[in-house]
Design a protein around this nucleic acid. Sequence first.
DNA 1: TATGAATGAGATTTCATTCAT
DNA 2: GATGAATGAAATCTCATTCAT
Lengths: 198, 198, 198, 198
Amino acid sequence: MGTKGQQTAQLIKTAARTVFKRDGYLNARMTDIADEAGKSPATLYNYFDNKREILHAMLEDFLSRVLDQGNPDPQGVYTSESLRSAIAVFWRTYTEFLPELVGITHAASVEDEFLQAWMQIREVGVKQIAGRVKVLQRQGLVDPKLDPYVAASALSSMLEHSCYLWLGMDAGGIGRPGSDDEAIDTLTYLWSRALGIE
Amino acid sequence: MGTKGQQTAQLIKTAARTVFKRDGYLNARMTDIADEAGKSPATLYNYFDNKREILHAMLEDFLSRVLDQGNPDPQGVYTSESLRSAIAVFWRTYTEFLPELVGITHAASVEDEFLQAWMQIREVGVKQIAGRVKVLQRQGLVDPKLDPYVAASALSSMLEHSCYLWLGMDAGGIGRPGSDDEAIDTLTYLWSRALGIE
Amino acid sequence: MGTKGQQTAQLIKTAARTVFKRDGYLNARMTDIADEAGKSPATLYNYFDNKREILHAMLEDFLSRVLDQGNPDPQGVYTSESLRSAIAVFWRTYTEFLPELVGITHAASVEDEFLQAWMQIREVGVKQIAGRVKVLQRQGLVDPKLDPYVAASALSSMLEHSCYLWLGMDAGGIGRPGSDDEAIDTLTYLWSRALGIE
Amino acid sequence: MGTKGQQTAQLIKTAARTVFKRDGYLNARMTDIADEAGKSPATLYNYFDNKREILHAMLEDFLSRVLDQGNPDPQGVYTSESLRSAIAVFWRTYTEFLPELVGITHAASVEDEFLQAWMQIREVGVKQIAGRVKVLQRQGLVDPKLDPYVAASALSSMLEHSCYLWLGMDAGGIGRPGSDDEAIDTLTYLWSRALGIE
DNA sequence: TATGAATGAGATTTCATTCAT
DNA sequence: GATGAATGAAATCTCATTCAT
């Protein structure tokens, strides 16, 4: 259950999530987070050096919860079903970690450090997708001239940016899916056809 | 050639482009833009009320240069060639107006006003793509159950976010194309297969 | 005694009184008040949003000290004695709250909000005087054709503006009374004769 | 008819009157006056060193039009009629020179120089009234113990401040007269009774 | 561990005023 | 004589961060 201190650190991170989600990482002020946590601003500094460190801590929690827990099947193969399932997992993960994933995107627009962090997280996914693409190329389902990493990056962008706009932005504009399933179905459809899967 | 005043307004916008590109819209200070323009900060305020207005003015220039000059073919149809050409146009436009297009993305993360503006610009493209998708659905090349706007939004995200990362970010991470052509080819390949073209 | 914070808020108001009195509300800068309070300018903003809010707070203190503590005798009648006493009370109040009362006058010349506030404070006095005038009209001591509010406003102006010039202005010009009593006596004399008392 | 230059100077003063009346002297900016005059700000500086000098020039025009043109009857005596007429003249003068007279009041709250100027103008009136009071004291109509200057200053305040509030302030508050005549009648009534006239 | 209070450092913004033409 | 354009010099205000308790 953790010491008092660990509890407080968690309390602060939870407050930060709330504030980041509500106001955006860039608009969030330390005092807002402190208010949300019901603590004095000074208390935050007993746990985190600054707002950046709070986001970093949140991202570490995210990484240990998501990436480290195993990317099963490093040499995996896409089937219609596994693809849909992979996209659904991504969608749900983005939903669950919205403040972290939108936050890092915004932080990256201001600090190179977070751009690097973002690109590293992204790299995991891109590499995995690229692996699948290579398989498909061997199978003759994807043009062998394609650089699998470039293709993977592009596909990743479709997924990531759709999640960003559809889940993260209050005003997502035209073309917003009516349900999680519609989103996942549409993305799966486009993606599977692009990769020549069934 | 314009009056001195018009020249100065232009000078400021050009300086802002440079600074936005170098430091990012959010990091740019009025002082930086003034320095880049070789003017006093006070001078900027004779032309623009604040940094937001500079970006707005830049976006208006962009709109009058790009969107107003006609989206030819409102009921157009995708062929392999027209698709590649459309993607190439997008790519080149993004390249040319990088500070504006990255700028509005960043500004949107902080001010709702710019999120709206971004979504409006995006809407033009999404609608156009959706029109093409509808045609393909009628031709039986795309699943009629798909909402064409949702699909168009997802495809647009692939394009837009790939440009953002590959062109806009100094550290674009893994999977970066080696040339403009590779980028355009890869995007065209994925997109055309997703839409069942050829 | 109040918390440290309350003390500081009070300290700032006291400093503001001093500075307003010395330099005038309009000339006073936040820095001056901060210096006078022995605080950093930033500290002031932890307590008041701006100079206007400081004056507002001072006026609220004034109102709770003066107006709220009861205008006894709402249907009161003027006698020589009660009139002199009323004028003396006004004089002493103006003396005591000089920074507030001169301050609101000056602030009113620049911001409509303070003009309204001033007029509201004035209204209390004018209504009270008008009530007395009505009584005198019924007693046949004042011309019944007179609008009691107009007359009350004029009499109030005599009192108020005399206080403003004699107490508030360092250079009060010619005709300044030599003592508080002379001021009160003269005003009482003119006022009582104007109203036909005694 | 004047040279071009004199015409422009006049144009600027006229514009300043308009702006002072609309926005108040303190809120008026040089550029506002320039705009109103249809001239460049730089042009104003060819004629006046700053806003203060414009007001000064306006006040000189006022003085030459009003005070210099003779204060008839330096040893004059008040009768009911002459008193009403004197008050009516003051009222009309205040009406006519509202921007100047309200302007100097406001300027005085910020610069001592204008407080002095105001007091000097006021002195002319106070001295005249005091002269009348002395006569009335000799006639036994006013208490000889009264300092005639103090009484004159108080009476002057009634007149001046009533004009200021009733004519000058857009929100004059309660007790505003319905017409010029009502204002003049009320002031005359109070004043004449205060001085024991008739 | 927690915090109320305070502040340094800086960016934005305003406006009177000047200057080159 | 007139002006478009530019700017120096402030004042306001914000916020992350620290410190004494």
